[in-house]
Design a binder for these strands. Structure first.
Lengths: 340, 340
DNA sequence: GGTTGGCACTCACGGTTGCGGAGTGCCAAG
DNA sequence: CTTGGCACTCCGCAACCGTGAGTGCCAACC
């Protein structure tokens, strides 16, 4: 009973603080929420909550604000994602439907996510690891150069210009095309790379080097570094709304957003799970962002989570709403990718 | 003589203000620059410059700062681009050389530009208007869907998934491939689109609709909206250095950076010219950015300026250095594109 | 005429001071 | 366990003030 009310108080503090951005005192609490008790009682509860490290006061004689631990508790135990309204659902699918391109899907997802959450959105490109090679196309640019185009099942296209040591004839090009496709088409990236790797040894000696450079380019294009670890960021303008201290929040954030490696790390854990994961404040692996939280989840076609997307914002954020939005977008994007 | 000194004073004020970010007074001026006259004399000159609207004082009894008009004068008449050092040149070409992709070139250019100028960099993708179709590739996805891949001379690749009304056979696909390439390959985008448009009328009646949908997808991919008007932004972390008022500079900037349409307008004028153009403060077409300047230039392969890149930063910036950097990057990128 | 030193004046800036109010902790009574 | 009362703390805000940088103007000088 008493324990229940303490938690109600914690929830109320989190909600009010998120809404007003100001430390919340005992009197304001009983006014805004029907707790059915007096401020004095609430004060006692607050003292207990502070004892447990769930809330803190910035200075004596100020209201309380939730600590990271308090937010954690709130997220884990006091909240369920609020469901998206029908209108929101329509908006989401409408927004994502017009996309014709993988790039376009990613681009739109970022915008959408930023708009829904009013935070900075991050979307990682679908990983290549599980995708298969759909087709390899080779186009002659001159007698000594060709363009190798790699088309993947996710809709992603990679291309490389290759300088070949042998003069390119139509025959040679055709042979290259047939053999590389025979080896790679339909295979997963890993197997495709392996199969391609053996190609140069199976052809006439004078063409070995030519095959080798082409294969090298293709394999390089398949390697993760080519496109997998790319992320797109959007909604930076929402930083302006943070109202938060420039030095503590916005500046490190801008710096982190430039460093895609950092972003990938932030999203990292979420990739493997299709649950929405929340990382609050200093729980994260990157110290400068100690006063921000990351809400992320895996997404991808139905054969398993492939990649991740999420948002990053001040620890003081509307977790239920944000988590719901992140999950909703991830699901819609997944179905879109499934169709393509 | 006297006129000369007045201009020297203006130059000194601009340089000092850019360096220190603080209003500069008469005494500080004679100390830091060898003007060979007393503070009192400088004060007279300053009064004259203020009369002409080239400088202003934020409040009585404060030093002077240049007005937009003052910067304009400085840029137009008092400065020559400072040449890049050999080391810088090496850094530039080294940085851009590893690129294998059009995407990659653009990406690297943005980073480079941001790093050199310590400002926010913007690079517009090379426009498609002058580029030619290198190759069209069609890949069957199922019996009723195919992937159309459009490869352009700039190295850009566009792709669209097409739903066809007729069952796809190898023969049909081969025919489509041959005919579309015959019509479009080697042609400029405009001509290619026109030639493709006539294709559906030249084939057997039962395949007309199939041709039509494929052609429509290709033409759509060629249209400017597909990829031409894309821009990439980098170096947002440099906003943190602006020290400037958050509300006046940083916030509107973040908002503008999200709106690619606005960015394109900012770069707009520069596209046509291979000169470095500078737009100072309220000269720009976008009011919220009244306290920022844009330094931009056209770039592209040798057959004419194709696109534009540049930076945007506070009006108070190092114009000579920035202009030189922008020009240098544009030139290097142009040569890279020429080679590809 | 242009230049210079002198001088009175202005005004932003930083530190200090002095409230008012919100909020707390504690205690004794219900 | 809850509640009202009460003394206490301390932030935030506004007013105040002295200081110093910088100015404009003037009279003298070259």
């Amino acid at each position: 009973m008493v324990e229940d009310r303490k938690l109600a108080v914690l929830r109320a503090i989190v909600e009010d603080y998120v809404a007003t951005q100001e430390p919340v005192g005992s009197k304001a609490l009983v006014e805004r929420h029907q707790l059915g008790v007096s401020p004095a009682t609430v004060r006692n509860d607050m003292a207990a909550l502070e004892e447990e490290g769930l809330i803190a006061q910035p200075h004596t004689s100020a209201g309380r604000i939730p600590t990271d631990k308090g937010y954690r508790f709130f997220v884990d135990r006091l909240t369920n994602l609020k469901p998206m309204s029908a209108a929101e659902k329509r908006a989401i699918s409408g927004f994502l439907e017009g996309a014709h391109d993988l790039d376009d899907v990613v681009q739109r997802s970022v915008r959408l996510l930023a708009q829904l959450t009013q935070q900075v959105a991050i979307v990682q490109y679908p990983t290549l690891a599980r995708s298969t090679v759909r087709h390899i196309e080779l186009v002659a640019l001159s007698t000594s150069r060709l363009l190798a185009v790699l088309i993947l099942s996710t809709g992603r296209v990679e291309q490389r210009v290759v300088e070949v040591p042998l003069e390119l004839t139509d025959d040679l090009l055709g042979e290259l095309r047939i053999r590389t496709n025979a080896a790679a088409a339909g295979e997963r990236i890993g197997e495709a790379a392996a199969a391609l790797g053996e190609l140069p040894d199976q052809v006439a000696a004078e063409t070995t080097r030519t095959y080798a450079v082409v294969v090298a380019a293709l394999v390089e294009a398949m390697s993760d570094h080519g496109s997998d670890e790319r992320v797109v960021v959007g909604g930076t303008a929402n930083l302006a709304r943070f109202g938060d201290s420039f030095e503590m929040t916005i500046k490190p954030m801008l710096e982190a957003l430039e460093e895609h490696v950092v972003l990938l790390k932030l999203l990292g854990e979420a990739t493997s799970s299709s649950q929405v994961t929340v990382r609050i404040g200093a729980e994260g692996p990157y110290e400068p962002l100690a006063s921000t939280s990351v809400v992320a989840t895996g997404y991808g076609a139905s054969d398993g989570a492939l990649s991740s997307l999420g948002i990053v914002g001040p620890t003081r954020m509307d977790y239920p709403g944000t988590m719901a939005a992140v999950r909703a977008v991830a699901r819609y994007v997944s179905t879109i990718l499934d169709e393509a």
